[in-house]
Amino acid sequence: MNSSLLVWGASGSLFILGAAFLVLRRQLIAMIIGLELMINAANLNIVAYAARRGDAAGLAAAMLVIAAAAAEAVVGLSLILNLLREEGAAESDRIRELSG
């Protein structure tokens, strides 16, 4: 069985499902979940091809992507918590304005 095709299929499917989450769900937390799915799909592809080619730079890039994605999740969830405290709900169609 060709493992490259398997990884390709799994990561492509995860990316499509993450994009569907991001576009079709209303809750901001669900949208963050979709974003995490998409980042993981991309990372899976990077790691698979880096390991296959013996490319350490690809693995290092995947490590940095994990760190950046964790920071993104923290900031996103912190913004959502702030929105929950001020608006009482975290739905995408209820955000009408941004103020500094």
Binding site: R26, I29, L77, L81
Partner: peptide
């Protein structure tokens, strides 16, 4: 580990369920 804990805290702070969770 870490991101899931944050996610669960955010879920705990949010209203339990929406009547219609879909965008359209």
């Amino acid at each position: 580990g870490a991101v899931m804990v944050l996610l669960v805290v955010a879920v705990m702070s949010s209203p339990p369920q929406l009547n219609e969770p879909w965008a359209g």
